[in-house]
């Protein structure tokens, strides 16, 4: 049986003009980005020549626009999921039913992701422009979609957790954007700080492991690493500048930051879904109590 929350969300979401409005805006930004790139690359040089190999950068621009839009859209959708139920006074009505808190949270998460998936899939025709010039493969696009959806899952799960914890949707949204800011820019600032003070901390060069650990949660770095791997430019490897003495596992990790980032997203998603389910479970306290009572009675 389909998750009832997901089913209801699908019905109500597709009945409001806001859904289609957001889709139009999303597609318009992607299409304008693509159009602008083509205009600049084809008509702004002196001899009006056109290099089809440059079209690979259209894919990069579109992928970056898509990633940025998803990171902005997912919190806006997911951060109101549980607090919206609370504002409508329908959360209690859900909690007294047979549905477990984890099913309610999963229903909310999946409905948010379904919309993000719709946004991502709807941009496929724009990506098709890059296909026309043969600069990328279908596998690259599917890889990109998987990465974007994993990032959306992570952002969505944290947003749903904030939504469980805070009564006002706006508080959850603002906090989530702060978290995204910390993940994208805070980690870079932290890395810069570590590099600047490397002499005091590490008495010399910053270990590669430290760099990887700091950059691991950064969705931007993961995205850049994936595009880098797809284009075969190996910019990530040069930036991380590992020496010959570096172990093969660390080298592999540095070259596959996007895979590590996907793993990080998966762990965070599972953790925050579990925390969200705990946060809305009204009987959590009494469950803990009954477990304690059972332990005491077993001890006797």
């Amino acid at each position: 049986m389909m998750n009832p929350v997901l089913r209801r969300e699908a019905i109500t979401t597709m009945r409001t003009w806001k859904t289609y409005g957001a889709l139009v805006v999303f597609l318009a930004i992607s299409a304008i980005g693509a159009g602008f790139f083509i205009y600049v690359s084809m008509f702004q040089n002196y001899d009006l020549s056109f290099d089809p190999s440059l079209m690979v950068y259209l894919y990069v621009v579109l992928a970056a626009v898509q990633m940025g839009l998803v990171l902005l859209t997912a919190p806006a959708i997911a951060a109101g999921s549980i607090s919206g139920e609370r504002e409508r006074q329908t959360l209690d009505l859900l909690l007294v039913t047979k549905m477990r808190p984890i099913s309610i949270v999963m229903g909310k998460m999946l409905s948010s992701l379904a919309y993000v998936l719709l946004l991502v899939v709807s941009t496929m025709p724009v990506f098709a422009i890059a296909f026309y010039f043969g600069s990328i493969s279908m596998l690259h696009v599917l890889q990109l979609m998987a990465f974007v959806l994993c990032s959306a899952c992570m952002v969505g799960a944290i947003s749903v957790y904030f939504s469980c914890k805070f009564k006002k949707t706006i508080v959850s949204i603002v906090l989530m954007y702060l978290v995204i800011g910390v993940l994208c820019f805070g980690t870079l600032l932290l890395l810069a700080f570590v590099y600047l003070s490397s002499y005091q901390i590490f008495q010399g060069e910053v270990p590669l492991l430290t760099t990887i650990v700091i950059l691991l949660p950064n969705p931007g770095v993961g995205f850049f690493s994936m595009i880098d791997a797809q284009l075969g430019s190996n910019i990530t490897g040069s930036l991380l500048a590992y020496s010959d003495q570096t172990g093969p596992i660390l080298v592999w990790a540095a070259e596959h930051m996007w895979l590590l980032n996907i793993c990080f997203d998966a762990v965070i998603t599972v953790l925050f879904i579990w925390l969200s389910a705990r946060a809305i479970d009204p009987m959590r306290e009494s469950k803990v109590k009954s477990k304690k009572v059972q332990k005491v009675s077993k001890g006797k």
């Binding site: 009832p4 209801r8 019905i11 009945r15 409001t16 139920e85 409508r88 329908t90 039913t97 047979k98």
Partner: peptide, 20 residues
Amino acid sequence: GVYDNLKVTEYMDFYAGTYE
């Protein structure tokens, strides 16, 4: 607590789903 954009039968059907 009621949901916007949901018809009466859909509202009832949703809660029927929550009780399996």
